[in-house]
């Protein structure tokens, strides 16, 4: 795998956010580089989702600076480079009239030509993204009829259909069974290593992927960045972050696994 650590995709400087005099994010500075595989962890209500939404321009911030590909957030236009899978994306409205193919085609909406018809090239991208995520055979099935794991892969296929350079996922395993979760992390890692797509995801399953990630960001109002996640995962750190007693379980065959 060739990593290009020279180009920061996200460059966050002294980012703070207050809502109704309540501090949500405090003085966060960090960088996310091309090719990285980044996990964001932290307690519920600690600001993880708000931080990601702020990075994507969905949440206005109070102080600081966010640069995307060296451009200020407000001036950044090339959103096709960024794929986003929000929290609870898998918990879809079961009656929504959309096939898996309809959903993945949405990823191409902003590039569509007149009256929204897809070009041959766009359709090829859609098919490739669905094949990559192993959901092409589900293309005519309604999204509400799919399992949590299948829906999750459809959502990622939608994000991939625009050929993004970075994929941001907010708790992608919500509503997904354990077997599918394992398969999901393997797929995610493959996207990172084989396709060189930068991956950033919020998770509570830090133990499962501790061996793979290249950067760990902990967020609880403030952020702490660690580029050697194995060093970061200590009982003391977890206790500080989550405010509860943490126990570290070590798996000698696979590496370190954490249970809190």
């Amino acid at each position: 795998m060739s990593l290009n650590f020279k180009v920061p995709i996200f460059d966050v400087k002294n980012l703070s956010l207050e809502i109704k005099n309540q501090t949500i994010l405090k003085n966060i500075s960090l960088e996310i580089f091309k090719g990285e595989y980044v996990a964001i962890i932290g307690p519920n209500g600690g600001g993880k989702t708000t931080f990601v939404k702020t990075l994507l321009g969905l949440q206005p911030y109070t102080k600081g600076k966010i640069l995307i590909y060296a451009k200020p957030l407000k001036k950044f236009k090339n959103w096709q480079k960024i794929g986003y899978v929000p929290q609870r994306a898998t918990l879809t409205d079961k009656n929504f009239p959309a096939t898996a193919l309809d959903i993945v085609k949405m990823g191409k909406t902003s590039t569509k030509s007149i009256f929204g018809f897809l070009s041959k090239k766009d359709l090829k991208n859609v098919k490739e993204a669905m094949l990559k995520m192993d959901v092409w055979h589900l293309k005519d099935r309604l999204i509400g009829e799919l399992s949590g794991g299948q829906r999750q892969r459809v959502m990622i296929a939608r994000a991939l259909s625009s050929n993004p350079e970075i994929l941001i996922l907010d708790e992608p395993n919500t509503g997904v069974d354990i077997a599918s979760q394992k398969r999901f992390y393997t797929l995610l890692r493959e996207l990172n290593t084989k396709e060189n797509i930068t991956i950033v995801f919020i998770t509570h399953d830090i133990g499962v992927i501790a061996n793979d990630i290249t950067k760990l960001i902990t967020i609880n109002q403030k952020a702490k960045v660690c580029t050697d996640p194995k060093k970061m995962i200590s009982c003391e750190d977890m206790s500080k972050l989550y405010g509860i007693e943490a126990h570290l379980l070590f798996n000698h065959t696979k590496g370190s696994h954490v249970r809190i």
Binding site: L56, L58, Q80, P86, A89, A98, M106, G107, K112, F115
Partner: peptide, 20 residues
């Protein structure tokens, strides 16, 4: 003319915003 964009917004307003 805007049918596909409106459909995307109806399904997921947030992701539609991030898609530009």
């Amino acid at each position: 003319f805007n049918a596909n964009k409106l459909y995307f917004i109806a399904y997921d307003e947030e992701v539609a915003k991030v898609s530009g």
